[in-house]
């Protein structure tokens, strides 16, 4: 985050070329100040606070300032932590794969198969309609659908596809990932669609004229040019899934855990320091994932 903002500040400062040379630096600083203040107050400071509290100690109903590594020692000493982080990464990876496939297909269809701009906008807005209701409602509405006596099972039973209701449809990894994909595919569609719209169609024509097949055009022209969009969508999806706790709780029937649930359990039990320590490790993990992703594509250059 901070890296990006820094990069945004620099050109902003450069662009604001003042008429009087002596105040040039002052104007730059002033222009950057509001954003820096907002981010400092609402992003950096809270994160620092979390990092500090993660070294504190806790009794059953209070926390006290200290500088100790107990919280981290317990976190790294327990195999639950590794299992839960593994589970979180698993959810993120599978969700990413599905949202990418669906998101790319939808965006491709909107950008290259719909010719009129009006229809493109209309269909794009159609995609956003589910987002007019709350996240939680969209998630919970799956529960009656997937349940043992739900619509999915009764339909399959009446078609004779299955003899007994499928239990794994609900309160399983399947339902968790289904909900994630449903919730977050749009975050993939929007940036990919955005970059695809900016692709110069003459490039595609040139490729076709040069004798490329449809797949070759897709793979050698469109995909490379869509990379920044894919990467932005990926960052959205990965961070959202890794930070989630409510979807996992509802859709797994509380039977699976991810890092978000570990943190929320700790908060519920007034163990703020230990929750902070877990949050710090989660933050580092997510930053590492994003760092790796950014090595593949230079978003700054592509934007």
């Amino acid at each position: 985050m901070t890296e990006q903002t820094a990069s945004l500040d620099a050109p902003a400062a450069a662009r604001a070329k003042p008429r009087r040379a002596p105040s040039r630096h002052a104007a730059g600083w002033l222009l950057a100040a509001p954003l820096a203040a907002v981010l400092g107050l609402f992003l950096v400071l809270p994160i620092l606070m979390i990092a500090i509290v993660s070294f504190w100690g806790a009794t059953e109903f209070s926390i006290y300032p200290a500088f100790q590594f107990d919280n981290y020692a317990f976190l790294f000493g327990s195999d639950v932590t590794y299992r839960v982080f593994g589970n979180t990464l698993k959810y993120a990876l599978i969700t990413w794969l599905f949202t990418l496939l669906i998101g790319f297909t939808v965006a491709y269809y909107l950008a290259f198969h719909i010719r009129s701009l009006t229809w493109q906008i209309a269909l794009f807005l159609l995609c956003t309609i589910p987002f007019w209701t709350s996240n939680i409602i969209r998630m919970i509405s799956w529960i009656p659908f997937l349940g043992r006596e739900g619509i999915a099972n009764s339909a399959l039973l009446s078609w004779g596809v299955i003899d007994a209701p499928l239990d794994w449809l609900l309160f399983s990894d399947f339902s968790v990932i289904l909900a994630f994909v449903h919730l977050y595919t749009l975050f993939m569609v929007v940036p990919i669609f955005n970059t695809m719209m900016r692709i110069d169609t003459s490039l595609i024509e040139a490729a076709v004229d040069a004798g490329a097949t449809g797949w070759q055009v897709l793979w050698h022209v469109i995909v490379p040019l869509t990379k920044p969009g894919i990467m932005i969508g990926t960052i959205f999806v990965v961070t959202l899934v890794m930070g989630d706790f409510i979807t996992v709780r509802f859709m797994s029937g509380s039977q699976s855990a991810n890092v978000g649930r570990l943190i929320s359990n700790d908060i519920g039990l007034l163990q703020y320091p230990s929750a902070s320590a877990t949050a710090v490790i989660l933050l580092i993990t997510v930053l590492m994932v994003i760092g790796i992703l950014l090595r593949f594509v230079d978003i700054r250059k592509e934007l």
């Binding site: 349940g147 043992r148 006596e149 739900g150 309160f171 797994s252 029937g253 509380s254 039977q255």
Partner: peptide, 20 residues
Amino acid sequence: QFRAFWKSFDESVNLMASGE
């Protein structure tokens, strides 16, 4: 053995009423 765990009152009602 378990279908789900519940944490709030409503969840326990829905689990039971839906036959899960």
